[in-house]
Design a protein around this nucleic acid. Structure first.
Lengths: 225, 225
DNA sequence: AACTTCTTTAAGGTTTCTTTAAGGTTTGCC
DNA sequence: GGCAAACCTTAAAGAAACCTTAAAGAAGTT
């Protein structure tokens, strides 16, 4: 799976590339609109991540050009926070999705997966299990025995991380990076609040699962007694 | 694994180099910004530790230059305590991490490991064993037979050092350096207090393991009888 | 526009860990 | 034995880290 990143901010492009490579994508970077368009025209990519503000040729123009050339590669547009009008322009011009900077790693990966999913592909079962709880990351429902609660998106994301890392403590920094992204100005207290919400819901479910605090290290799921 | 240290304070650079070499890294030192940049441009390093305040060329400039030259080696910036704006500048310019002086050896090593970790690496099992005790350095739980106690972060760090150096006495200075950093103003009594806590917990576990004092030298784990 | 739901902010409280400090004990040496 | 240095232990003060809650703010819906 080959992805092209068209982005002039070197550090952002690199960071992105790093993440994508870790997730087994092949990545190329173009630092300005001109090279970006050239590369994209080769039509060898499965996905293009395209910044709007670019030197030489801007993202919207590239997008229009590509669609005119009948290149239908899925495209995710990157836009600075708040540039809603850009969003509209992007979608109008045939972008498949857009993402505001700064964005959370997990969110980008989720969108890429959604975007590159082939039609007819088997729809996965989105259920994660840990001891007596089951989390459906798609419907955001958490179940234990006969009881069930709805989680919010952030609650579900945090629980998902904790379930996936079951045997290793997860620090607040890791959670913040996954949920809010790189340079997000998010306090530790955010995480604490959500952990508190999750604990309340777990206790409502009367589950044996508890979220254990390891002071100075992080959080970890455990089974009571 | 080859690391470049760019740092003008000779003693700090040497101390760092010592520690890294002990941990099986190959280390080069550059004493000013100019040599540092030259060396870094060779692109043979797996990691660069870069001080911000440097003669000739400062750290931030070096960093920008490297990123411009498409050198993506992970970089850890060193900053004097409290220079938060420097931190921001560093990350903005594409640094991967920063560390305030003075720093604890273990923290530096942990960050280096995190930074140089290859993708897809198996999540480690965080358990250290010595005779009849097992220490989980992630959950901070110490187990022996059926019994289990929770350790605090510092207790766990000290025990980890003792287990890793099982056949060699560990001085208070070494422990202080690893837990609090180089020039930390920490008394020997701190270590004594924690050793005392650990002994109490070991005895609660009814383990055969004891912490032996070697007067004038340090501490060492041993098995009773 | 009113409503609902989710997310963020903020404050105060609680718990736990770390540090301090002081008095006691052991050890080696003269 | 007497002394000093090194070490041990403990309680309590101090400092962090964490928890919880309520309410404000944002976003999306009807």
């Amino acid at each position: 799976m080959r992805i092209l990143i068209v982005e002039d901010q070197g550090n952002l492009a690199e960071a992105l590339a790093q993440i994508l490579k870790k997730n087994n994508y092949t990545v190329d970077i173009a630092n300005d609109g001109e090279t970006g368009l050239d590369n994209a025209l080769s039509d060898i990519y499965d996905l293009i991540i395209l910044d709007i503000m670019l030197p030489k040729i801007d993202g919207i123009t590239i997008l229009r050009h590509l669609r005119k050339e009948k290149i239908v590669t899925p495209i995710i547009m990157l836009t600075a926070k708040g540039e809603i009008s850009d969003k509209v322009k992007g979608l109008d011009s045939g972008a498949d999705d857009y993402l505001a900077k700064p964005f959370a790693t997990e969110e980008l990966l989720a969108r890429i997966r959604a975007m590159t999913r082939r039609k007819g592909e088997i729809i996965e079962d989105n259920t994660l299990t840990f001891d007596d709880i089951q989390l459906n990351t798609s419907s955001l429902k958490l179940t234990s025995g006969e009881r069930e609660v709805k989680l919010t998106l952030k609650e579900s994301e945090i629980l998902e991380i904790l379930i996936n890392r079951r045997n290793i403590a997860t620090s607040k920094e890791i959670i913040i990076e996954k949920l809010w992204g790189f340079d997000a100005e998010v306090e530790h207290n955010h995480v604490e609040v959500y952990i508190s919400f999750l604990r309340k819901k777990l206790s409502f479910l009367a589950s044996r699962v508890i979220i254990n605090t390891i002071r100075g290290v992080g959080y970890m799921l455990e089974v009571k007694e």
